[in-house]
Nucleic acid binder design. Structure first.
Lengths: 161, 161
DNA sequence: TTATCTGCAAAGGCTTTGCACGACT
DNA sequence: AGTCGTGCAAAGCCTTTGCAGATAA
């Protein structure tokens, strides 16, 4: 069963050596905590919060502090190994998937899923509209209801009918 | 001189009566503080933060509390009279321009400007990509450098050459 | 009159900062 | 050896909550 069923081939391969090299290349020291955090990030597409990451990694490092998670995420982000997910709902969310993609946010359960769409990757703005801006990047965020929340809604509706 | 030089005709007209009616329609009480806050919001396109609004209105109401600004903004948002600007940089930003539009964020000075572009208002996603989501809305955020920051950059570059 | 709004105060959540010890290169 | 990372603690910023008095409808 493919990890990505949507026709997207993940470009991020992570063996310990690859990770080690990637860190060295960016001038980042490779500590066990960092390795664990980065590994965890690579193997999820759930766009975890700092707390999520902390609770996922902490069992392996009982002494791990939240602070270190913050620090690590900041470092990884500066190095371009992860990105923060542009959603404004209290806690920040992070994403180790650096392939070009966009996001769908479920209004019901606040889940965030990746969206791959070629057309979205090629948006063009007429220079007339940009008011002198030199635009370098953009992101598209879709909002709606995920399949599970839709099911839940229609069931709740049936009951009241 | 037109307020909107980009071909956009502002649809929000605000006379005191219109505001009064709009509030009543939404079941909002029209207090002097609220009126002042909403008026201020309507007459700016700077996407102010709560603090910005507070400092703009406070001179007229020396007793005004930040709390009231928060409360008012929450009420106005629930009523659909304003929207929060989807940018995640510490403080929330608000916008009384409810016409369909998108935003350009300046990476240099963090200014936010409106972007009107018909093509952006008609994005379509193939249902194959949506993984069961029922998408209801979306927004596009562009990032880049505004004309002023571009000028500043090129000047700084000249000096070092 | 009554539900809402205001202002003050306090608490809450997320994040950053300071510092000394420890670890990676 | 020296720089960077870790953990603990404290502080910071933005926002929400609680409550009594005031006010718009």
């Amino acid at each position: 069963m493919p990890i990505f069923s949507k026709g997207h081939v993940k470009s991020t391969i992570s063996t310990p050596e690859v990770v080690r090299q990637r860190f060295r290349q960016k001038g980042l020291k490779l500590t066990p905590q960092r390795y664990a955090i980065y590994e965890m990030m690579i193997h999820t597409d759930s766009h975890p919060t700092v707390e999520d990451i902390y609770h996922a990694v902490q069992p392996m490092f009982p002494m791990l502090s939240l602070n270190t998670v913050y620090y690590t995420l900041t470092s990884l982000k500066k190095a371009g190994l992860i990105a923060d997910v542009p959603v404004q709902e209290g806690a920040a969310r992070f994403d180790a998937n650096m392939d070009r993609h966009h996001h769908m946010v479920c209004v019901g359960c606040h889940k965030i899923e990746d969206l791959y769409d070629q057309a979205l990757d090629q948006l063009k703005i007429s220079t007339k509209s940009t008011n002198g801006y030199l635009l370098e990047s953009y992101r598209v965020e879709f909002r709606g209801y995920c399949s599970r929340c839709r099911k839940r809604q229609s069931q709740a509706k049936q009951k009241t009918e």
